[in-house]
């Protein structure tokens, strides 16, 4: 079960790169990336990942809007989405949670633990490579 695909949608280059490297090294999953909501939706359609990690604050199309588009399309509506957000107040997080996403991970995330956090949220039990 280690051969999963995760799509990271995050406009900030450094954060995206750290997340990608962290998942590749600590989990062995295949990691795809997109730097904008639009690009992310296109990649989600073609690659059908097992999970989308989605940044909340992005220019042009933000995380919640991207999420809604993904939900509106039958081809992507079943893919679990975890939001990455620097919003830390419970009220803001509650608002995000009410979108119906599978989980929320707060930034800054710990690169060593990111894969574990995802495993826990999704109850993925694949062994670490």
């Amino acid at each position: 079960m280690a051969n999963r695909t995760v799509l990271i949608i995050e406009d900030e280059d450094s954060v995206r790169e750290v997340a990608q490297m962290s998942l590749e090294l600590m989990s062995g999953w295949t990691v795809l990336t997109a730097a904008s909501g639009g690009d992310g939706i296109a990649k989600a359609l073609t690659s059908q990942p097992d999970l989308i990690l989605l940044d909340v604050m992005m220019p042009e199309m933000d995380g919640p809007t991207t999420y809604r588009h993904l939900q509106d399309d039958a081809r992507t509506s079943r893919i679990p989405v975890i939001l990455l957000t620097a919003k830390s107040h419970a009220s803001e997080r509650a608002q995000l949670a009410s979108l119906g996403v599978t989980g929320i991970i707060t930034k800054p995330f710990d690169p060593v633990q990111l894969a574990d956090q995802i495993r826990q949220i999704l109850s993925w039990t694949d062994p670490v490579e």
């Binding site: 450094s14 930034k107 800054p108 995330f109």
Partner: peptide
Amino acid sequence: AHKLAGALGTF
């Protein structure tokens, strides 16, 4: 500021 808050901690 938001972007900085998210990125700096990771590093």
